[in-house]
Amino acid sequence: MSTETVEAIRTTVPVGAVYAPDSRLDWSEALVPGDVVLDERVAPNAPWSAVVRAGDVLTIVDVGGNQSADCLMFNADDTSERYSVPDTLTWQGNAYVREGTVLRSGLGRPLMTVVGNEIDRQDTIGGACSKESNTLRYGHHTAYQHGCRENFLAEASRHGLTSRDLVSNLNWFMNVPVEADGALGIVDGLSAPGRRVAIRADMDVLVIVSNCPQMNNPCNEFNPTPLRMIVTRNEDAVR
């Protein structure tokens, strides 16, 4: 999880890019008041997961700006209940995620609620990148590039989950407009270094995040940067 630089070894592995040394990073702080119960840094290209307890708030900091944080959520007590894009969109009658959006499961129940948001709108249509879909989108020369689906599978496997448990996801800090004729795609982001989103757990939720390594579209400004994950607990908040 550390982003501290270690002495680089010589390797023949074609690893993905990381941010340019002169990138502006703003680590920011939690978006809501409360005691910090978790504070971790997610390296560029890496996965992350944690269980966020009911009532606790997860702040995700877009440290370098326009870094897509691909995100899946599961009921921590029964992972067959999980985030559902269509249920979330249907209940709110809108295709974009904003402050107040209730992130629902396939059973229609609230998993988490967006309680703070410093971006105009967040995406949950664009899905995750993968080694497989990269071959369609950009060509077969990308077949050995890392992808969010790899991160999701690796992190999910640590919780006993498999590819059957992966569904369409959220993309914090990514921008996917739908135009009048249905044209849709990932375009330049609306975020900036230090911008945040805060999501409150409405039950105990397993959150899995992929710090997106995609280098073929603007979902991370072609400059993969770290994320900061802060969980806060406010005993005064209504549970």
Binding site: G127, L136, L184
Partner: peptide, 8 residues
């Protein structure tokens, strides 16, 4: 995969 069905 609906996301890929729309995105790609």
């Amino acid at each position: 995969n609906v996301a890929d069905t729309q995105k790609i």
